[in-house]
Nucleic acid binder design. Structure first.
Lengths: 239, 239, 239, 239
DNA sequence: CATGAATGAGGTTTCATTCAT
DNA sequence: CATGAATGAAACCTCATTCAT
């Protein structure tokens, strides 16, 4: 891999090695031209560490690298070069796993959604009382959001056409809407339009979290949670 | 005559854009290349309209063109070339008025902010009763938002680091917070934390609007407004 | 919607070169657009010669092209476009090997320095007598300089802040200073300040060469050399 | 340092100009478009200070501004915009006095040459003894050079095609050559080739000054001068 | 599975110069 | 004498993607 380019040597020191003289090569090639990598005695070449990994692991490694970089510098500002450097693979490898840079963002979204939803539903599932379920939902959502802010942002913000935020959170809101409907059906609370209420409550929660993150409210996390819970109960006529 | 310091980047001070004596020149209008001005029948070319305009008008024209294009294709997808073509001026003229493409986006934000705030405050100012003022605020905000969605999106979405949305809306939320505080002070309603309540109410309003735009709720605009108003009143213990 | 901080330049993080999803792309060789490679008869298109070369060769080819063009038209007047055209590669390839146009000039300097120094020291090394060594140094330097004038000029003239010429020649002068000191130590000649004497002798040599090149003196190369040698000996009290 | 060809257009004269008929004026022009100048209260307009100056003064002011900027940032890196800003005039005014940016550099060269030569000849003229005249010449040249380094550099370095340095200093060297010849004619010293000796001595002086400026020699100005004088005398067989 | 040299369209920005007022 | 809005060619540099090995 005769890299004489001035670009910084990619993070991982364990180098990848290009192996051979290609057969149909131009007569010009005078030497082995192995670049600066041939640090070992060329007479006793290292038996080429295996560079391969199970596909799933490699894919995850790439996804991890991408997520970190997207978070740190934004999607558009992150080049595929940077991702592969961070993952310690060659450029082509990236395209072995993702059709495009955008495709890797979508993969990240899937990963996020799956985990986020899972966490909420698991929390809710532990309760039977409707009021408890509501509290659990709100709590899990707020915590999850606060914990994953950076990822959430990058994953849902950086896409054009900047789909309405609501749309992105469709599944999560649906979950809340069902909860609200369920509670209403059993008389736990009253609501005119479960779906729209869910939308607004979720948005309120989101906004409170954003404010907390932005440092615009002096409240700590638990106080924030308390405020959101109170807000919800009031909307649903609980308190 | 070697240079002892081997790798130091020598100060590279040449201008990057023109390397040769320009000689015969740019300003020379030799052909029909009059840019986008030639809107009239090319068979009867105008005898050289003066191309200058008062600076303010030119600036506005550029801003208008930029806003339209940003709305239609997004900020990043809009090239300065496109903007100047739409405005009917040369590329350099753009940079006469804005330091960079990004700077033009900022100018757009300023314009938007000014108008949006103005509209809300004007609507509120027409009422004295606190409840009416609240309703007016909500109504004006929702309508304003629904009317200006496209601009709003482009103007506030395309910036990194995607500052918390809440932050961007700081001024507007502040306005709502003051309103809520004012009402609370006179006993028009009760609230524990005017600021956080404002944040959440504004977010809820925003979310409802987004849902309406995204077509996720079957309600029309007035029904949406009614729902939001009801939501607000409930939160403030009014109804 | 409004953004409270009015004028702050928002971090502008989008990549500057590609704004839309690239989709089907550049690398795709769809047409005959094979760049400057198609040197063979276009009627019988080569079945896609491999375009890759060992990095070192490509780098050298680029450097050669750059040197020639810099010499012919000057650094600033040479565009990267011209360089890559001359080297028969795409624009991006240039930036694969050099971080910037300036960086390629630096690479050229390195190349020149290496060769120039080598030549002088090799010539000197063939002698043991101090006087012979001095003559050899002067001769090699003058010849080398006269032979490489064009390269020398471009390589050391085009940089700002036009570091004192002396500085650029630091290594070479150092070599001369050591020689003078060595001779003085063994009583071959006398000198008050070896370093400053080296500086002045080297400058005198340089000046004589410049005059010869500029055609300001009617002497041929050997006469010029003789004059410089005589000058030096006189300064060192040899003749 | 003088450039022998005084007024010659540096490079082929570039054609220019265009002329068009103004024709009818658009109705769009609404104001006088006075730009940012109208800083005073428009209701009580300042009675327009006269902005005009005698041509010679304005020209000098522009030249001063240009010299300072060229010195600080280099010729190419200095824009006409910067010059006019520094001189406090409008862009067009610059072109009223200089045909191009390059022309202003040439004007600067003339100014420099005139002053430098004058200073040396005046110093020499005060002596009659040949040895004193030589000393005076060297002293004045070294001092003048050390005092005017920055200007000298910018004025003689930034032009393409980087004429041999020797050529630029033609007049000054000629002056030295005549001095050496004169002394030789009267038997004050001996020399084989006055012209070449002058070249080399001047170069040595130049080199010593450069080294001093670059901080490569620990000597102060008077020590440097002493060394150069000693060097010269040795070359001419004086000491 | 993996590599990495090569591509090249596309973008932003600069600034010398003109000319109508 | 002076202005300054407008021009527009031309430069540098980026990076998503391909494909021969």
């Amino acid at each position: 891999m005769p890299n004489s380019s001035p670009k910084a040597e990619p993070t991982p020191p364990w180098p990848k090695h290009r192996k051979t003289e290609p057969g149909a090569c131009s007569g010009l090639r005078v030497g082995p031209a192995q670049g600066a990598h041939a640090q070992a005695n060329p007479c006793f070449p290292m038996p080429d560490l295996p560079r391969t990994k199970p596909a799933a692991l490699r894919r995850d490694a790439l996804l991890d690298a991408a997520e970190r970089l997207f978070r740190e510098r934004g999607f558009a500002a992150t080049s595929v070069d940077a991702i592969v450097a961070a993952a310690g693979v060659a450029k082509g490898t990236f395209y072995l796993y993702f059709k495009s840079k955008t495709a890797s963002l979508v993969a990240l979204q899937d990963r996020f959604v799956f985990q986020f939803r899972d966490a909420i539903e698991q929390a809710v599932g532990a309760h039977v009382d409707w009021s408890d379920r509501l509290d659990a939902w709100i709590t899990a959502a707020l915590n999850g959001y606060l914990d994953q802010t950076a990822v959430h942002d990058v994953v849902f913000h950086e896409v054009r056409p900047c789909a309405r935020r609501i749309k992105s959170n469709h599944l999560v809101i649906q979950s809340l809407a069902l909860l609200i409907e369920g509670g209403a059906a059993t008389g736990a609370w009253r609501t005119e339009d479960a779906r729209l209420t869910a939308v607004m409550l979720f948005s309120a929660l989101h906004g409170a979290a954003d404010a907390a993150i932005a440092g615009l409210t002096p409240l700590d996390r638990s106080a924030c949670l308390a405020a959101v819970l109170r807000f919800c109960r009031r909307v649903l006529g609980l308190a």
